[in-house]
C-alpha cells in the first residue's frame, strides 16, 4: 500500500461488525430482532462515516437510520406480523444465484475503482475540491458541506425537500395522518 491512515484500522472493525449483523439479519426470522439489528447496523455505519471524515453524514445516519427508521419499522411490525415464514430451499438457491451473479459483476469492475484514500483520484480532484477553496472565498462559512448543500447546490436540495414532502403526502394518502380516525369511532 502506498498511503495509509490511522482510520484504516477502524475500517476493519466496522467492516467485521457490519458483515456479522448483515448475515444475522438474513438468518433471523423474528422480525423484532431483525428491526433492532437494523438499528445497530445504522449506528455502526454512522460510526464508520465519522471515521471516513463525513461527520455530517454520520450525524444524519445516526439520527435518521438508528432513530426514526427503527421507530417506523417497529410501528409497521406491530401493525403487521412479528415472525417471518420459513423460506423454501429453492428460493434460497435462486437468491444465491442472483446475488453471486451481481456480486461477480461488481468484483470484475473493482479494478476500475479509484484507489482508496487517494487524493489524486479522479473523484477527488474535480469540482468537489474546488468547493473547498471557493467556500472560503465566496460563502465564508466554516462548514463546507452546509455551504454546498444550501448554496452551491441549493436547487438540488429544494428538490430533496419536495421529495420528503411528497413521501409524507404519500403516507398520508395511504394510511391517513392518524388525526381524524379516532374521532370518527
Amino acid at each position: 500500500m502506498s498511503a495509509s491512515d490511522i482510520t484504516q484500522y477502524f475500517d476493519y472493525i466496522f467492516m467485521a461488525m457490519l458483515l456479522c449483523i448483515g448475515i444475522a439479519v438474513i438468518r433471523l426470522r423474528n422480525l423484532f430482532a431483525v428491526v433492532m439489528l437494523t438499528g445497530a447496523y445504522s449506528l455502526i455505519s454512522a460510526a464508520w462515516f465519522v471515521s471516513l471524515d463525513a461527520v455530517d453524514v454520520g450525524f444524519t445516519e445516526a439520527a435518521v437510520g438508528a432513530g426514526i427508521s427503527t421507530v417506523l419499522l417497529l410501528g409497521a411490525m406491530l401493525l403487521t406480523s412479528r415472525e417471518a415464514d420459513k423460506t423454501s430451499l429453492g428460493r434460497h438457491a435462486a437468491a444465491a444465484v442472483v446475488t453471486i451473479a451481481a456480486g461477480a459483476g461488481l468484483f470484475y469492475a473493482l479494478g476500475d475503482m479509484p484507489v482508496y484514500g487517494d487524493a489524486a483520484s479522479p473523484a477527488n480532484t474535480g469540482v468537489g475540491m474546488e468547493y473547498v477553496d471557493l467556500t472560503a472565498e465566496q460563502i465564508v462559512i466554516p462548514n463546507v458541506v452546509t455551504a454546498v448543500l444550501a448554496s452551491y447546490r441549493g436547487f438540488d436540495t429544494m428538490g430533496e425537500v419536495f421529495v420528503v414532502f411528497a413521501a409524507g403526502l404519500g403516507v398520508a394518502l395511504l394510511i391517513g395522518l392518524g388525526g381524524s380516525k379516532r374521532e370518527e369511532d
Binding site: V57, T60, E61, L72, G128, V148, R153, E160, V171, I175
Partner: peptide, 30 residues
C-alpha cells in the same frame, strides 16, 4: 480535506431514504 461533494449527496439521500422507506411501510400496512 476530504471531498465534501459526496457528503452532500449522501446527506440528502439518507433523509429521502427514510421518507421512501416509510411509504413502503405504509403500503405494507395497507
Amino acid at each position: 480535506y476530504s471531498n465534501p461533494l459526496p457528503h452532500v449527496l449522501i446527506l440528502t439521500a439518507i433523509v429521502v431514504g427514510v421518507a421512501t422507506l416509510s411509504v413502503g411501510l405504509a403500503l405494507v400496512v395497507r
